[in-house]
Simulated scan of single mutants.
Amino acid sequence: MNTLLIIALVVAMGATAYVLVRGVISMANGKDASGAIQQNYMQKRVLFQGIAIVIVVVILLAAGGGRG
């Protein structure tokens, strides 16, 4: 199960990085006058970051086992 969580974390981190780079490239082009595309990229980046954080928490809880 830990392997699956690690793979999911890497995928979420990769998706975050991809959306971040796409957003920066889109901003550098400067074609979006309304900012709607930038807002869309920002929302996707925050979503993927949230997913990655949740996966990290699950990994830490699984690693902690029954301690407490």
Rank of each mutant, 00 (worst) to 15 (best):
I7F: 07
A28E: 15
M27Y: 07
A17L: 13
A8H: 11
S26H: 06
A28M: 08
I55Y: 02
G64L: 10
V57D: 08
L5A: 14
I55V: 15
K31M: 02
I59W: 14
G68M: 15
I59G: 13
D32A: 00
V24D: 00
I25K: 13
R45I: 04
N29W: 03
S34K: 04
N29Q: 12
G65I: 13
I59F: 12
L47M: 09
M1S: 11
M42T: 11
G65L: 14
K44M: 06
N40C: 09
V19G: 00
V57H: 02
M1F: 03
V54N: 02
V57F: 05
G35F: 00
G35M: 13
V57E: 14
L5R: 15
N2K: 06
N29Y: 12
G50Q: 05
A63V: 15
G14Q: 03
A15N: 09
I59K: 06
G65A: 08
L5S: 08
Q38C: 00
I59D: 10
D32C: 04
I55W: 06
A17W: 01
V24C: 01
Q39C: 04
A28T: 02
M13T: 13
L9I: 13
N2H: 11
S34L: 12
K31D: 04
A28H: 03
Q38M: 15
L20H: 10
Q43E: 06
V10P: 04
A12Y: 08
V56Y: 02
A52I: 05
T3M: 07
V54S: 11
K44P: 00
N40I: 03
G64S: 14
R67P: 03
Q43N: 07
A36K: 12
V24P: 00
M13R: 06
V24Q: 01
T16S: 13
Q43H: 07
L61V: 15
V58A: 12
K44D: 08
G65C: 06
K44L: 10
V19S: 00
I53M: 14
G23A: 02
G50M: 02
N29K: 15
M13P: 01
G14E: 02
G65R: 11
S34T: 13
I37K: 00
A36C: 09
L60Q: 09
L4V: 03
G14F: 00
G30R: 05
V10G: 07
K31E: 15
I51S: 07
I51H: 09
G35I: 01
K31Q: 09
L60W: 09
K31R: 11
I59C: 05
R67N: 15
T16W: 03
A17Q: 02
A28D: 12
L60I: 11
I59T: 04
L4E: 14
G30L: 09
A8W: 08
G14W: 05
I25G: 06
G23L: 01
Q49L: 12
G23M: 01
V56T: 08
Q38I: 02
A33H: 11
V19I: 04
Q43Y: 08
S26D: 09
V24R: 02
M27A: 07
G68I: 07
T3E: 15
